[in-house]
Simulated assay, not measured.
Amino acid sequence: MPPKKKEAEKQAPDAKQTPKKKPASLKILIAVMALGLLGGGGFFAYSKFFAKGDLSKEAQAKPVVTKPVVKNMETFLVNLADPGGERYLKVTMQLSLNSEAASQEIDARMAELRDSVLMLLSSKEYDDISTLSGKLALKKTLMSTINRLLKQGTVQDIYFTEFLVQ
């Protein structure tokens, strides 16, 4: 019988043996899933409770941008101030205005504005407006002349749609 005892002893330790340890890859997988859930929950909480307040503050801080109003001006045809008076300038332009009120004021005061622009254009010589820098300077001068006359808004930019010197 002694041999049977050895067999029983061999089987007994197997039954009393501690359960097998879980593989390391399973522990890593559980840790990654837990971190993912915590990260997702944190992101959800931030976007739900904190981000809305930040966005509303940014929206309040930004100034309201209005769409510019473009106003067509009729063609201007003037003699240039060159000696001999043989050259003339033909200009068609559009005004970019900051408000609809400025457009209405231009309609109401068109004669006064056209007179000022005609006087300004007829005071120029060919050498003053023949270069790119001369045309840019003319734009600035026209803008300041018109803006001095306007009371309800301003001209933001001037676009030359036709510019002919002969």
Score class of each variant (00 low, 15 high):
Asn98Cys: 01
Tyr126Cys: 01
Asp128Ile: 08
Met119His: 13
Ala108Arg: 11
Arg87Phe: 13
Gln104Trp: 10
Leu97Val: 13
Tyr126Met: 05
Leu80Cys: 03
Val117Cys: 13
Glu105Val: 04
Ile106Pro: 04
Tyr126Gln: 12
Gln104Met: 12
Glu86Tyr: 11
Leu120Pro: 03
Ala108Cys: 11
Ser99Val: 06
Gln94Tyr: 15
Ser103Thr: 09
Leu113Arg: 00
Leu120Ser: 05
Gln104His: 15
Leu89Val: 15
Leu89Thr: 01
Leu97Tyr: 09
Gly85Asp: 04
Ala81Gln: 04
Arg109Phe: 04
Glu105Ile: 06
Ala81His: 08
Ile106Ser: 11
Ser130Val: 06
Pro83Ser: 04
Arg114Thr: 08
Leu118His: 11
Ser103Asp: 06
Asp107Lys: 08
Ala102Lys: 04
Glu105Arg: 06
Ile129Arg: 03
Lys90Arg: 11
Asp127Met: 02
Ser99Asp: 14
Asp127Ser: 11
Thr131Trp: 07
Asp115Trp: 13
Ile106Val: 14
Glu100Ala: 08
Tyr88His: 07
Leu118Asn: 15
Val91Leu: 07
Ala102Gln: 00
Val117Gly: 04
Met110Asn: 15
Val117Tyr: 03
Met119Asp: 12
Ile129Ser: 03
Ser103Lys: 06
Asp115Thr: 12
Leu97Cys: 09
Pro83Asn: 07
Leu80Met: 10
Leu113Met: 05
Glu86Phe: 03
Leu113Ile: 15
Ser123Cys: 08
Glu105Tyr: 13
Asn98Ala: 10
Leu113Thr: 12
Ser99Cys: 05
Ser123Asn: 14
Tyr126His: 12
Val91Asn: 05
Leu120Cys: 13
Glu112Trp: 04
Asp107Cys: 04
Leu80Ala: 00
Asp107Phe: 10
Ser99Lys: 14
Lys124Met: 11
Gln104Ala: 14
Arg114His: 15
Leu113Gln: 07
Asp115Lys: 10
Ala102Cys: 03
Met93Arg: 00
Leu97Arg: 07
Gln104Val: 15
Met110Cys: 05
Arg114Asn: 10
Ser122His: 09
